[in-house]
């Protein structure tokens, strides 16, 4: 029997709300590690992120500035945090923060902090607005899409599509428009929330599937678990799902990771067309999904493997997973004393 290695891991995405960040799922995976004895540093943007207050999740929490505060503010904060903690690995869990972490990576390395995250090129290649080019570059089947920066361009862009079309925000949100009037309406709705560009995408009628996967940055798929959502929230987020056995989904994950040399966790959103059974790649989310703990339930601990890869441990890819495992989320009111809230409010750490 080997003794577990002590390690300190910092994790963002503690917002275990109705549309949750992946942080808590990642921490649960790390807590179940058979290789590491983990100390978890939570990194929170907001002082009411539930993960700060949940028992047994984080050992210490630091509030960090939003990426919009700029690179210097983030670097200053991490210099302070690393002065208190000896963080070995950071796992960022938000799309919107990833670019800042990519820029910070060389500075993190100097501080002794390891990351397994995509490069700037990998991150930008898979942006929703670049999906067509991504498909062409890597010979991956994607739905036709067009990027629109101004309402005046919308009508012309729509001429190349048959209705219905999907109107998507650059980060989040997607609406199905059955007419040009609806497309205009959704353009304004999405651009008001997420800014431009918005993406017009061919509507594929079929079933959606998702895959949580991990790449080693050298082209090897280290693990992958496909899932079908069985219950959705009003925001279209998975509230329940089930692991499935479809080799084509794993093959798609393998292709994406080998062709892009992806480093770190990712989620593939895929659509299988009813008529043709053809698989389309809709999106690549550049981090673990909030449901990544299902992979643990299926026998693949992706967060643990990410840490091992980041730390340069030798690891063999997962080849098997359990099919027919379900996850179901639930809401739960925690009763909290004021002291933690007070400390994080006043000191920015607790």
């Amino acid at each position: 029997m080997h003794s577990k290695k002590d390690i300190t891991i910092a994790v963002t995405g503690l917002n275990a709300i109705d549309s949750p960040g992946p942080g808590i799922a990642v921490i649960r995976g790390l807590r179940e590690s058979t290789f590491y004895n983990v100390r978890i540093i939570g990194l929170a943007y907001e002082i009411l992120e539930p993960g700060i207050y949940m028992d047994g999740m984080v050992d210490k929490v630091y509030q960090i500035p939003y990426p919009s505060s700029g690179f210097d503010a983030m670097l200053e904060r991490f210099t302070y945090i690393q002065g208190n903690e000896k963080i070995d690995v950071v796992i960022p869990n938000f799309d919107a923060e990833l670019m800042t972490f990519i820029k910070l990576k060389p500075h993190f390395n100097k501080m002794g902090i390891h990351l397994l995250i995509p490069t700037k090129e990998q991150f930008e290649d898979r942006l929703k607005g670049n999906l067509n080019a991504f498909g062409e570059k890597h010979q991956i089947n994607v739905p036709k899409s067009e990027t629109v920066y101004h309402i005046n361009e919308l009508e012309e862009a729509l001429e190349g599509f048959e209705y219905p079309v999907v109107i998507k925000g650059k980060f989040y949100d997607a609406y199905i428009a059955a007419s040009s009037e609806q497309a205009r309406e959704f353009y304004f709705k999405v651009s008001a929330k997420w800014g431009v560009p918005i993406i017009i995408q061919e509507f594929i009628k079929g079933n959606e599937f998702n895959v949580t996967a991990l790449g080693d940055g050298k082209g090897t798929l280290m693990g992958a678990v496909p899932m079908r959502k069985t219950f959705l929230t009003d925001k279209g987020k998975a509230w329940a799902g089930i692991s499935i056995n479809d080799p084509n989904l794993i093959k798609m994950a393998d292709e994406v990771i080998s062709k892009t040399q992806w480093a770190g966790g990712l989620e593939l959103e895929l659509m299988k067309e009813d008529k043709t059974n053809k698989l389309y790649l809709l999106e690549i989310n550049p981090r673990f999904p909030a449901w990544v703990y299902l992979a643990n339930g299926c026998g693949q601990n992706h967060p643990e493997m990410l840490v091992k890869l980041a730390m340069g441990e030798k690891v063999a890819p997962y080849k098997k997973y359990d099919v027919g495992k379900m996850f179901i989320r639930y809401s739960y009111d925690m009763i909290c004393d004021l002291d933690k809230y007070e400390k994080i409010s006043i000191h920015g750490e607790v």
Binding site: T230, I244, N245, D246
Partner: peptide, 8 residues
């Protein structure tokens, strides 16, 4: 009855 390919 469970279809493991589709999760239905």
């Amino acid at each position: 009855v469970f279809n493991p390919e589709t999760g239905t």
